[in-house]
Design a protein around this nucleic acid. Structure first.
Lengths: 150, 150
DNA sequence: TTATATGCAAAGTTTTTGCAATGAC
DNA sequence: GTCATTGCAAAAACTTTGCATATAA
């Protein structure tokens, strides 16, 4: 994981100008373990930066993705989520409550040898493992409902 | 993989009425190895069914996903793709040409034991492995360019 | 000084929805 | 005959774009 300072440096090295908006966005993402949407970050940054535009959020996040400060998760068909943890790890989406969990216990290192076919040499720059299901707390809720209502 | 007849039966069993539109959509997807978008299917079905509405395409595809005739792939942030091959397999997106390839050589069976944490029992109903990179034919193109232009 | 970034609003894309008419069972 | 489905158009949701203004370097 990166600090705000490292994030800013990475953007500067990529040739970006360091504006107060960008600092605020980087700071909002620093050290997070969740997977905010553009809208979520917008809402948070807006408190300290009331004139911030959603277009600036999208632009900065696109830059941050380019310099690997965030990963872009297309895990559902509604919107995109941003993950400041760019280490290899999978994600689990609960299809009931919509919460998104990390799958840190997957060792995907053996998947680095992915090939389209045994003799193909397409480069695999990154990969994503998405799992879908009903999380344990939603399952508990279902069981309670069955017990008292069903 | 399923045949048109099996697909229709599966929809009927789920309580759907079998309309000529649905037959056309199921037929358009039967046996495909690619990953068409709703728009692509719409374009194809339109030839034989000129009054078909895109809303019908979306509705039928949603039903087909529910009865596991297609998988919904949220592999990029632009749109959703439909995969009539519902067997476990991964996907590879070339970020240069945008083509989507199957990864049949991944044995993901060991991933069935995915857990959010060692003692968690969230159910994993399905998972998707998405890899991103530059495919070998795009790489070849780059090399040629370098050789003659760079 | 100069090129890049910002904020705003408008436009673009994909997908969903409401509803009257239609058609399957 | 009944109720789900269709087609249409409009709406919704998310993201991008164009442009005048502002600002970092």
């Amino acid at each position: 994981m990166w600090t705000t300072e490292q994030g800013i440096d990475r953007l500067r090295e990529a040739g970006c100008k360091i504006t107060s908006q960008r600092i605020a966005i980087v700071r909002a993402l620093e050290g997070r373990k969740d997977h905010p949407s553009a809208e979520t970050i917008y809402g948070e940054v807006l408190r300290l930066h009331p004139s911030m535009s959603i277009a600036t959020i999208y632009g900065t996040l696109k830059m941050m993705a380019k310099v690997n400060l965030v990963k872009v998760l297309s895990i559902d068909d509604r919107r995109v989520y941003f993950d400041p943890n760019t280490n290899n790890h999978g994600h689990y989406l609960c299809e009931k409550c919509g919460r998104l969990f990390d799958l840190d216990h997957i060792d995907a290192s053996d998947l680095k040898t992915i090939r389209l076919s045994p003799d193909d040499h397409s480069s695999v720059l990154r990969f994503e493992l998405f799992a879908y299901g009903i999380c344990s707390s939603c399952q508990a809720g279902e069981k309670l409902k069955e017990r008292y209502l069903g």
